[in-house]
Design a protein around this nucleic acid. Structure first.
Length: 753
DNA sequence: ACGATTACTTAGGAAAAACTAA
DNA sequence: TTAGTTTTTCCTAAGTAATCGT
């Protein structure tokens, strides 16, 4: 990269923004800014620092170099660690490569560069689509179909087919056993979509038929004995106002009904539903008494719990009927499960964290709000009698069946397919393949961004430091969001100065960055990490002359970053790093933690610990379960009891041994054996309990589910199970096995991510 | 080239179901 | 059987990123 040239670009870049930015300049100078508008702030920052960039850098660079000469040694510790990690990765990917070439050729796209890919993405349609349409259902007999992975290579075909056959045989066995359990229920065997070709160029399906959504049940007015009081006086509400009142009444026990914003938003929206008279009377929420309503609903839920078995069964059957009718669609000759076929019922919006819209009324969705998507030649879903759909369209470039616009944020909601469906599964698989491609070039990218830390251009340095965080700390990209519309949360690119603290030295480590911010779902991210000196110096530079609520990376946003990433690798975006780092961490931790001598429960503990390492990396937290302490105590009690039992058993064994020594008869010998077995069994049970306790304790505030479901290449887990003879059911429950059927079917014990 | 819109993935908590101990 | 606990499923909010439209 030629310095002078880019420098010029930077200046041009700055210049071109002057027009925009000078608007804000005055505001900035006067320092009366409220920092309400961060976009504006960015512009302002630009104009302010704009032309002085270069100077800043050359000065800084000098200082840096000087210091680096002797300071470098002191950062060695960290750097070395880092280097080692890199080396490991490199080595792994090397021997991975060797194996892989033979291994699941069809699953792991060999290609690095553009050439095969171009072929895949840009080739004219061929006639794949036709194929797809016809030939399913009887695919239990082998068709030597190759899978179209995102970057498949032609020479692989042969191997693929062979591979597939062996896998298939295995899988078939599994299914037989499965079938026994379910007996009649599943006549058609599972469709292996992953053995078929994929659509190209954005077509998602050729045929789509479904029954439309299930609407929320209509409002049932309260029985007349359940009364509402305003200012101590009983008051009969109109059905519309009453319905909204019940939403509030149902939440009375929740803390947020005490929150000001919640109450304010609720009351405002409630009044909109009132009649003129009601509006005139009900002017103060504090004077509203919802207690009878609240009690009524509590009683209702009690009654529901206390229902007879038959009644419960009836409800269950009805649910099942609805599921059968509305829960499936036909997509390209296959019946597939729909994820959320029920329309969200009306209620009070509760966003997460400190949400400015909490308490607003989420309105009821009606047929005329609904857009239906299906194929032209399908039997279109019927709107309920006397109603009409907003629109019926036939867009096979999208995957949704139904959509509507929600009234709180004005965003679109969709009904889509279940994760076990082809359309979701293919995408998921593809996601991991992209991450695996990143694995192949991550070293190059890392070297690149480290170089960029030295760039003359502010925007490049910022980009490089942000990318470093995304890579090292698995931060989210951090799109900008409209202020005041949502809770104030950030990701990497939207970090503000106030979210980090720089410690030249902390706890004996140098160049420590302390992060403290709210991320997605208002989950706190707190972390203190030593960074490389250059990063540290850059951060100091980025923070210079900024207010706490100014953007840390004022020259960067996710679109700039992703554009850059796209140039580094096809299909690369910020979130791929999270997937990659999560999966590679799991693989490496499994390698490190699994003990071949361990029994199954201990191995599973190792698995959970590896999983936990990932969850911690990705900051997947949960509120400690309310019953955590108690449940821990219970478990401990169990352990104690088991210990007693064990010592009893041991004592008995001892005396049996003594007895046998004296008597030397068959009977007593046999008794020794039995006792020995008993001791062994109890020891095993004890150890199982202890493992469970450890696992639970370590998991107190960590949520494993999210990473398991969304970040960890399931083939890593499947391979691990196969390698150690662990039943995959121990790792994945039924739903998860359905979602990951492709991986369970295709991964061998030597799969390498 | 941008802001807005759209499509789709990721997320934690609540509710329901399944399991277990009493 | 019941009551309590744990696991699974449901729910839908909140992200990311691609695409649209100007």
């Amino acid at each position: 990269m030629s310095g002078d040239h880019s420098h010029n670009e930077d200046q041009i870049d700055c210049g071109s923004r002057v027009n925009d930015s000078h608007k804000h300049k005055d505001k900035y100078k006067e320092k009366e800014h409220k920092h309400k508008d961060h976009k504006k702030d960015k512009e302002r920052e630009k104009s302010k620092h704009g032309n002085s960039d270069y100077k800043d850098f050359s000065e800084k660079k000098h200082k840096e170099k000087e210091k680096m000469k002797h300071k470098d040694g002191s950062t060695d510790k960290y750097k070395d660690k880092h280097k080692e990690k890199r080396k490991e990765d490199k080595m792994r990917s090397l021997d991975g490569k060797i194996k892989k070439e033979k291994e699941n050729g069809f699953a792991s796209p060999q290609h690095f560069k553009s050439e095969p890919e171009n072929d895949f993405y840009h080739s004219p349609k061929h006639d794949k689509s036709l194929k797809r349409e016809r030939d399913d259902d009887n695919d239990s007999e082998f068709k030597s179909k190759k899978i179209k992975t995102e970057n498949e290579k032609k020479p692989k075909k042969r191997k693929q087919d062979e591979d597939m056959k062996s896998k298939k045989t295995k899988k078939l066995k599994g299914e037989v056993t499965d079938g026994k359990k379910k007996a009649k229920k599943e006549p058609e065997e599972k469709w292996k979509w992953w053995e078929e070709e994929r659509y190209t160029d954005g077509v998602k399906w050729k045929f789509l038929e479904h029954k439309g959504p299930v609407f929320a049940p209509p409002y049932e007015p309260l029985p007349s004995h359940v009364k509402f009081y305003y200012d101590g006086k009983q008051m009969k509400l109109s059905p519309e106002a009453e319905e909204v009142a019940t939403f509030f009444a149902k939440m009375l026990d929740h803390e947020y009904t005490t929150k000001d914003i919640f109450r304010k938003n609720f009351f405002k929206d409630w009044r909109k539903e009132m009649t003129g008279e009601e509006k005139a009377i009900i002017t103060d929420l504090k004077k509203c008494n919802f207690n009878e309503m609240s009690e009524y609903f509590k009683a209702q839920s009690e009654a529901r719990k206390a229902m007879t078995k038959e009644d419960k069964l009836k409800i269950k059957e009805e649910n099942e009927r609805v599921l059968q009718e509305y829960g499936f669609c036909i997509m390209d000759n296959h019946k597939e499960r729909i994820a959320n076929f029920r329309i969200e019922p009306p209620g009070l919006f509760r966003g997460r964290g400190d949400h400015p819209k909490m308490g607003m009324l989420k309105r009821r969705i009606r047929p005329q709000d609904i857009i239906v998507n299906c194929s032209k030649d399908s039997k279109h879903p019927e709107p309920p009698p006397g109603t009409k759909w907003k629109e019926v369209r036939h867009d096979n470039k999208v995957t949704w069946l139904v959509s509507w616009t929600e009234n709180i944020q004005g965003s679109i909601k969709y009904i889509m397919l279940n994760p076990s469906s082809r359309i979701k599964g293919e995408k998921d698989w593809q996601k991991y393949e992209t991450a695996r491609r990143l694995k192949k070039c991550v070293d190059r990218i890392r070297n690149q961004y480290r170089e960029d830390w030295k760039s003359k251009e502010m925007r490049i340095r910022q980009r490089a430091v942000a990318l470093y965080f995304i890579d090292k700390l698995a931060l989210r990209a951090g799109n900008e969001k409209e202020e005041g519309e949502t809770a104030d949360t950030v990701g990497c690119c939207s970090l503000r100065v106030e979210h980090i603290n720089l410690h030249p030295e902390s706890d004996g480590q140098e160049y420590v960055v302390e992060f403290d911010f709210l991320g997605k779902d208002s989950i706190r991210y707190y972390n203190k990490v030593p960074v490389e000196k250059r990063v540290f110096k850059n951060l100091q530079l980025f923070m210079e002359n900024k207010e706490p609520d100014d953007d840390l990376f004022d020259r960067l946003n996710t679109s700039i970053l992703n554009k850059h990433l796209q140039e580094l690798m096809d299909g690369l975006t910020a979130k791929v790093f999270r997937t990659y780092n999560a999966s590679i961490t799991l693989q490496q931790q499994l390698k490190e933690l699994t003990n071949s001598e361990d029994n199954i429960p201990a191995k599973i503990l190792s698995y959970n610990r590896a999983n936990r390492a990932v969850a911690i990396l990705c900051n997947h937290q949960r509120a400690p379960p309310k019953t955590f302490e108690k449940s821990m105590q219970n478990l401990q009690a169990k352990i104690d009891a088991k210990r007693d039992q064990l010592s009893d058993a041991k004592r008995e064994l001892k005396s049996a041994k003594a007895d046998a020594k004296v008597r030397k008869d068959e009977k007593s010998k046999k008794s020794v054996e039995t006792k020995k077995k008993a001791v062994q069994r109890i020891e095993e049970q004890l150890m199982k309990l202890e493992v469970q306790a450890t696992d639970r304790e370590e998991n107190k505030q960590i949520a494993l589910g999210t990473s398991k479901l969304n970040y960890l290449d399931p083939r890593i887990s499947v391979a691990w199970c196969k390698k150690w003879g662990i039943p995959v059911e121990k790792i994945y429950n039924k739903t998860q096995r359905e979602k990951f059927a492709w991986a369970i079917d295709m991964a061998d014990d030597d799969f390498e991510f």
